[in-house]
């Protein structure tokens, strides 16, 4: 692709229609299913957090689901994903079950990390989900290392590395992109720009609000778009994935999105107005995908049946997490070192 990104309007009075051909209806339905599952799992997590079943921090992805689902739809199963502490959507989209995810958040032994990782550190090695990380920007060099290994072994895999726009200001972002560019690593850096790094808006955290511009300094390709349509996300990320896989070249993609909840459960999000939030909710990519499915004749009854199945899946996962045992302290040493404990 050329170096110029597609034009991005700064403010939009009305949304363009979803334009993907209706031949992709079943595919869209599949993506909608994943997004709806993520939404419902997280809503139940918020409830469980209020009930004290989940401890620590809980960073919800609600509103951003189309990024994970669209981007990961562009991958092969054995391609790698690394992301931030806002990782529930990514883990589910990569193939983790709602049971395994919720059990982890409940701190149970049946969770993906046996209850040792929690909400911010979801790992699923068999699905090549290499984790959620809690230090902003710290995982960006790590993801470059995974891509380095793919190039070293010529295994043809691509790594997707997700981070928020808040990570763009820290050193790990620069070092990760700089080295990936220098060594031409098969990786796609995806900045999920949700407009707020915790409570600080773009205008007060970045001198240049177009994150994709950073790519110019590293001499790598870039792209930038709004997350209106999950199929468009797949297509655009797919272009970058192809560039990584076939040419072993990195890309920086900025996806403009929005989170409907606060930074974490303790954040009432007083830094933005109700009007702003309501306006953003009208653009909810999940709702728009559903409207598109209905308009294109997928069928209300089929959608309702799908949603009913997901409700059952989520209820089953909550029950599973509730009833699962807690991990025993005896697992701590063996999960710290391979082999004998080193003290």
């Amino acid at each position: 692709m050329d170096q110029e990104p597609r034009a991005v309007p700064e403010a939009r009075e009305s949304l363009p229609p979803l334009t993907q051909p209706s031949g992709q209806l079943d595919k869209l339905a599949g993506l909608y299913r994943q997004m709806f599952l993520i939404r419902r799992v997280e809503e139940e997590c918020a409830r469980a957090y209020a009930e004290g079943k989940i401890g620590g921090f809980l960073h919800l992805y609600i509103g951003q689901e189309a990024v994970a689902v669209g981007a990961l739809a562009a991958l092969r199963h054995d391609d790698y994903v690394m992301t931030t502490y806002r990782d529930h959507g990514m883990a589910l989209a990569k193939g983790m079950s709602a049971r395994t995810l919720m059990a982890e958040l409940w701190g149970k032994q049946t969770g993906c990390s046996q209850g040792l990782g929690g909400s911010m550190h979801l790992f699923d090695a068999k699905n090549s989900m290499l984790g959620g990380y809690g230090i902003v920007g710290g995982h960006i060099p790590l993801a470059a290392g995974v891509a380095f290994a793919s190039k070293y072994r010529a295994d043809g895999k691509v790594t997707l590395c997700f981070f928020g726009e808040g990570a763009v200001s820290i050193g790990g972002f620069h070092e990760g992109l700089s080295l990936a560019a220098l060594w031409k690593l098969p990786i796609v850096f995806i900045c999920e720009n949700n407009e707020y790094s915790m409570g600080t808006p773009l205008s007060r955290s970045m001198s240049v609000e177009d994150v994709s511009m950073k790519a110019l300094g590293y001499g790598i390709d870039r792209d930038r778009f709004f997350v209106d349509d999950v199929l468009e996300v797949e297509k655009r990320i797919g272009e970058a994935v192809q560039r990584a896989r076939e040419l072993s070249l990195p890309t920086l993609v900025e996806v403009r999105t929005y989170r409907f909840r606060g930074h974490s459960m303790s954040d009432p999000a007083k830094y933005r107005t109700k009007d702003e939030l309501e306006l953003q909710k009208k653009k909810d990519p999940l709702a728009r995908a559903r409207q598109k499915l209905v308009a294109d004749g997928y069928g209300d009854a089929r959608l309702e049946q799908m949603e009913k199945e997901i409700e059952a899946e989520v209820a089953d996962a909550v029950k599973f997490a509730d009833e699962s045992p807690e991990p025993d302290a005896s697992i701590l040493e063996a999960t710290t070192y391979v082999g004998p404990f080193a003290s």
């Binding site: 290499l130 060099p141 470059a144 290994a149 793919s150 790990g172 070092e175």
Partner: peptide
Amino acid sequence: GGFAGIGVGAAMV
């Protein structure tokens, strides 16, 4: 920070 992280990522896989 960059190449230490690259090493860790490569070791993880």
